[in-house]
Simulated assay, not measured.
Amino acid sequence: MAKRASIRDIAEAMQVSISTISAVLNGKAAERRISDPLRDKILKYAKQINYQPNMLARGLRTGKSNIVCMLVEDISDPFFAAIAREMEKQMASIGYKIFYSSTENDLDIAQSLIQTYRDRQVDAYIIAPTPGLEKTIESLEAEQLPVVIFDRNLPKIETHNVLIDNLTGTLNATRQLVESGRKNIALVTLDSKQTQMMDRLKGYQDAIKNEKQKPIVLKLNYNRGVDDITPQLKDFFIKNASIDAILFTTNYLTASGLKALKNIGKSIPNDVAVIGYDDNTNFSLYTPTITAVSQPTKEIVVAIKNILQKLLTGKIKGKKETVLLPTTLIQRESS
Score class of each variant (00 low, 15 high):
227 D>V: 07
111 Q>P: 03
13 A>V: 11
243 I>T: 06
73 E>V: 15
285 L>Q: 08
56 L>S: 09
67 I>T: 02
163 L>P: 15
328 T>R: 04
80 F>D: 02
28 K>D: 00
320 K>Y: 00
267 S>Y: 07
67 I>K: 04
28 K>Q: 12
329 L>C: 07
59 G>M: 08
155 P>G: 02
48 Q>D: 11
73 E>H: 14
66 N>A: 05
308 L>N: 02
104 E>F: 04
127 I>A: 05
285 L>Y: 06
217 V>E: 07
213 Q>H: 12
136 T>A: 03
196 Q>T: 13
225 G>E: 14
28 K>G: 02
213 Q>N: 09
322 T>D: 08
182 R>N: 14
125 Y>D: 01
279 D>P: 08
153 N>V: 13
320 K>S: 01
115 Q>R: 15
273 A>T: 08
237 F>A: 11
96 Y>C: 04
53 P>E: 10
47 K>L: 01
200 R>S: 07
130 T>H: 05
34 I>V: 13
333 E>L: 01
263 N>D: 15
158 E>A: 04
60 L>S: 14
202 K>E: 09
183 K>W: 09
246 I>T: 05
37 P>G: 06
120 R>E: 06
20 T>P: 08
218 L>R: 05
66 N>Y: 04
317 K>I: 06
270 N>A: 13
270 N>L: 08
48 Q>P: 01
44 K>R: 13
241 A>R: 15
11 A>C: 10
188 V>M: 15
133 L>H: 02
85 R>H: 13
157 I>K: 00
152 R>G: 07
240 N>A: 14
105 N>W: 07
279 D>K: 07
253 L>S: 10
72 V>H: 11
128 A>P: 07
230 T>Q: 13
127 I>F: 00
96 Y>D: 04
75 I>G: 03
94 I>R: 04
318 G>V: 06
18 I>T: 11
17 S>L: 00
15 Q>A: 08
197 M>Y: 11
183 K>E: 05
324 L>V: 15
133 L>W: 05
202 K>A: 04
255 A>D: 14
126 I>Y: 03
207 A>D: 10
191 D>T: 12
141 E>C: 01
176 Q>P: 01
100 Y>C: 06
269 P>G: 08
170 T>R: 13
120 R>H: 12
87 M>N: 07
61 R>P: 05
19 S>Y: 09
117 Y>V: 02
22 S>G: 03
305 K>R: 09
114 I>D: 00
306 N>F: 13
228 D>C: 03
247 L>E: 08
172 N>I: 15
151 D>T: 11
20 T>Q: 12
235 D>V: 12
318 G>A: 10
249 T>E: 06
179 E>K: 14
213 Q>W: 03
79 F>W: 12
92 A>F: 10
267 S>G: 00
83 I>G: 12
177 L>T: 10
281 T>Y: 10
148 V>K: 07
40 D>H: 09
1 M>P: 13
149 I>R: 02
50 N>A: 12
264 I>S: 09
82 A>W: 15
67 I>H: 08
150 F>C: 12
133 L>V: 01
326 P>W: 04
55 M>Y: 09
97 K>S: 02
144 Q>T: 04
56 L>Y: 14
124 A>T: 06
105 N>Q: 14
138 E>H: 03
281 T>G: 01
61 R>E: 10
173 A>R: 01
